[in-house]
Design a protein around this nucleic acid. Structure first.
Lengths: 347, 347
DNA sequence: TACCTCCTTGTAAGCGCTTACAAAACTGCT
DNA sequence: AGCAGTTTTGTAAGCGCTTACAAGGAGGTA
């Protein structure tokens, strides 16, 4: 770990200077700051006055060393583009704050990975850590999981490490069935690369399952990434192939929005000419016209559950190894359904 | 600070057990882990083997105490709804990571404030801290600023505390002038409450300035909050008044999107019947039709600058007290301009 | 072989706090 | 006034690491 050199040594007050100013022992100051143990009112007032006068701020590292806990949880995410990870982080932070824990956040590098060095540095300062699957090498995860609580959130499963995630297969099956049964679509295509992430793979599994249950063979997915630009690329490919489809089931909302935009630019109207669906229910999904039919995930709840599970383990409690949170299909105009009166998406 | 009680004491390896296993002193282990000072290759290999075998993870708090630095920066934000704060956080985290620093994040409570207790707890564990203006009481900010580097980011200015922000007045003047001069709008109304936040106040100042430069008196703004629901409320009020306007200059994109949606539901077309503009240039602004004319802010750069400025101060370097980053008007369909061929918004 | 220089490594103190144990002070009763 | 019980407060060790200083070893030269 490299710290800046020649940094000035802190000149702030410590528990020793507060004790001296208040005329008590450092143990008494500690009791006042922590609100633990009995301290007489007169003594407490003297200590608080000294704290105020000296602008004393406790030193978290010293306390952490003494109590043998960091009182912090770590979270590793790829980025915060799009609302999914923001939502996850908000849930995680809120639950951690309720338990009086700090949150240390590390975001992946531009290649969507986190070096073992950076991961180790994060792990050094927390009691428990949650990682989006696939960002940190499996071996590093397993190694850290041997010494402190570690959970994988969504993303890639690491053998031997517990994972919390939202359900994909069932809702994807329902979504695809909706297109086939309720809207008469017959040639849907999956837009996304099942090999990129387990969540995408599971969404594709649901897609295939719905088709095969109706005796229809699923074609090859259009293998693109999960960014807006990937949605554009997907449409270019489909157009080059003569657009052999009447419904696009996209792996997330971002590519669904880009897909819809690019189709419109090419003269193909959604849902008239073909249907488009997404996944996540981001805010934009509610505002575009037609509104985007998608799958809503309880991301904030997932984040909160992860933090609570980690804290429980840090506290020595046994918890369920893994969990899958339910998701739900939200029908809007882009599949051919009537728009809700006012977007009924959860808020 | 309340830590969970009855927590199991860590059974993990420490530098002492690694030293014993490797047959060296703890100083040598420390030299290997830090890569500081010379260590012979044979000794290093022995230490690394012991580290691997014992699953040793360094203890950040112990090091922090020894080197007298937390090697972490703190950031206080209200929430991560909408992309603005996510973008700010990504910029902040990336710059901090480049300097080998951890990021501790605290999000405000539901009332958009952070208690002095939670703020003090965060401050206890970081070398420098950045706070969105208005979340933490001024007195607590000033007090902490006396003992460690502290910066306010955007939001409310705290007297005596440096602030980094993005420019509002000039771009708001330009945006409003564009409506008046280029699109012939004559009765624009500002949607947002200038008393909520200094950024909103400055945007309103720009709005008023453009009008008064043309001898037009600005009417009262429609004073609503900054959430989607507030946009709906604004339109209801305007409709109740007979919609006495031909252009709505909204304080942010979220209310602009909600405004546009609600107007359409009431039979008023944007930009035909009236123009709508926003602020921030969130992703949704690019995808709605018509595309939202807005003001794009370099939020990620702002976040990164804040982290770098904090780190510089932590390192004892003097930095400029404050900074204002430029913003720019992005013209799309919602003011009456032609849509760009493909959204040219920065990415 | 002896001495000098340089490199590697060990020793030991301290960073700022917590808290078990014990000492001191306080209160109430005889 | 003295004693017993309770409450408040002080003492001192330790948490896991860093690193200044010094010791020990290695290498080269005379």
């Amino acid at each position: 770990m490299v710290a800046s050199s020649a940094a000035p040594v802190p000149a702030g007050a410590t528990i020793y200077s507060v004790a001296e100013a208040a005329g008590v022992s450092i143990a008494t100051v500690s009791r006042v700051v922590q609100g633990s143990a009995a301290v007489s009112e007169r003594t407490r007032d003297k200590v608080l006055a000294a704290i105020q006068h000296l602008d004393y701020t406790p030193h978290a590292a010293a306390r952490s060393l003494a109590v043998r806990q960091h009182e912090a949880l770590g979270l590793v995410l790829p980025e915060l583009d799009g609302p999914y990870f923001s939502e996850l982080l908000m849930g995680f932070e809120e639950a951690a704050a309720e338990d009086g824990l700090s949150v240390l956040l590390s975001l992946a590098d531009h290649d969507r990975t986190l070096s073992v060095e950076r991961f180790t540095r994060l792990a050094a300062g927390v009691d428990g850590i949650a990682v989006l699957g696939g960002i940190v090498p499996d071996e590093a995860l397993r190694r850290t999981a041997r010494t402190k609580p570690l959970l994988v959130v969504a993303g890639a499963q690491t053998p031997g490490v517990d994972r919390l995630t939202a359900e994909n297969v069932t809702s994807s099956t329902e979504l695809t069935a909706h297109l086939l049964d309720d809207h008469g679509r017959s040639r849907p295509v999956f837009v996304g690369d099942p090999d990129i992430a387990p969540d995408v793979r599971e969404r594709h599994v649901g897609f295939v399952r719905a088709l095969e249950a109706r005796g229809v063979e699923a074609g090859e997915p259009v293998r693109v990434g999960l960014r807006e630009a990937d949605g554009v690329v997907a449409v270019e490919r489909l157009l080059a192939d003569g657009l052999p489809t009447d419904a696009l089931v996209c792996a997330n909302d971002e590519i669904a929005l880009a897909v819809t935009d690019r189709l419109a630019a090419a003269g193909h109207r959604v849902p008239d000419d073909l249907a488009v669906t997404g996944w996540d229910d981001i805010m934009a999904a509610r505002y575009v016209r037609p509104g985007l039919t998608t799958v809503q995930q309880p991301v904030r709840e997932l984040g909160a559950l992860v933090a609570r599970r980690l804290h429980a383990r840090v506290s020595g409690l046994a918890t369920e190894p893994s969990a899958v949170l339910a998701t739900r299909v939200v029908r809007r105009g882009s599949c051919g359904c009537p728009e809700p009166g006012r977007d009924a998406g959860p808020r």
